[in-house]
Write a protein that binds this DNA or RNA. Sequence first.
RNA 1: GGAGAGAUGCAGGAGUGGUUGAACUGGCACGCCUGGAAAGCGUGUGUACCGCAAGGUACCGAGGGUUCGAAUCCCUCUCUCUCCGCCA
Length: 424
Amino acid sequence: MIPINYIKSNKEEVLARLEKRGPQYLDLLEKVLKTDFERRQTQQNRDTVLEQANALAKEIGICFKNGEHDKGNALKVKTQSLKEESKRLEEALRALEEKMRNELSAIPNMPHDKVPKGFSENDNIVERVWGEALQNTDGFLCHWDLAAKYDLIDFETGVKITGAGFPLYKGKGAKLQRALINFFLDQAELQGYLEVQPPIMINEESGFGTGQLPDKEGQMYYVEKDNMYLIPTAEVPLTNIYRNAILTEDELPIKITAYTPCFRREAGSYGKHVRGLNRLHQFDKVEIVQISHPDNSYNTLEVMCSYVSGLLEKIGLHHRVLRLCAGDLGFASACTFDMEVYSEAQKRWLEVSSVSNFEYYQSNRLQLRYKSKVNNKKELVHTLNGSALALPRVLAALLENNQTPEGIRIPEVLVPYTGFEMIE
RNA sequence: GGAGAGAUGCAGGAGUGGUUGAACUGGCACGCCUGGAAAGCGUGUGUACCGCAAGGUACCGAGGGUUCGAAUCCCUCUCUCUCCGCCA
């Protein structure tokens, strides 16, 4: 949620930025400001009534202490109407607070200045392309065929054990996956990220903190008996480490990384585009998260992007960096870059990472703040995260792009991790 | 899963119905002292919301209730600890 005070004191800016997402949010903005106004008035009224009631109670106490029972009892009568009034106002206030929260939750994050206008993925801007497509890819097999040919992934058995979208990696397929995880984690550590292993089930509060709940409830697997969700991304547990926390300015930026499986229901997506590893219900991912001083967050975003891009360079994957347009931006994000690798056999781009700055959107929900050195006040931080990287599509591109008549060649940097140079 | 104990401010820890937002100790900040430091002394030190301000309101795990008045009494829930059971 955008902090209400930020909206109040920067209305023009919020309006201008939000407008990029479309005009439908401007009304919401007015609405929430109105609700906020009513809320404040109601609070004032309630406080006044309570003040009177408190004063009376105090007076009554003194009366009884001094033995003036008659006077005390007389005063008691007066409290009755105040009590009813305060109860009424209390309820009204609570309703208004909830209304405001709901209205605020319906407003997406404001796109950053540099986010282009646009409605669909066609309006995204290609920021950078690294590498180029191969010249001769005649006879190239798609990764699902390669996986079968070299016995790397057994989709059918995954279906038998669980269902579609839960692949079973085998032999060198499993090893390659493990190698990638270790490589990505080691790289992150070199950049100063602290590796953690978080829980992969989360409670409701955590889901709310990072913005998955209540909106994206249907995307997550839910364990009803214990009221928990399987994480759709490590972003949720990693960022929620710092829910309700007050950091010192010296602690910033906080940089953490984790490897976790991720679970997504992906309800309603079927067909060719979700074949093989393209879209799964369970997949592995290494995530990086930064908690940043608001003044530095956009610099941080750039650093994170080039880091992710650098990873793809190291494993030699032709890729591009997209600056997402307002229409393609996630609800909670203020600015997002997507990294897509080129799949030589499928002849299309596959998203392998998404790096975002959420500004105050998550920290406001999380109540994640730092103590400012300037005024010693508690201020909200900016949160950022990115995939570094999501495994299945990297694996898919790696298999497809590195296929040769002799087998699949493993990128040099990964050989120390896999222990083999070729999949034959 | 069964039995018991507990949850108070940055931390420890008092407080069992009335000027208690909360004693006391420590921590921290500032000042004095010192050549400098330690010790010592003094002062200060919660958060959120409303308000231009004065000030007000709320908060003693969470939510309800009793009462003119609740950290304090009652109910429900959550969490932590100890013992037993089970277990990778």
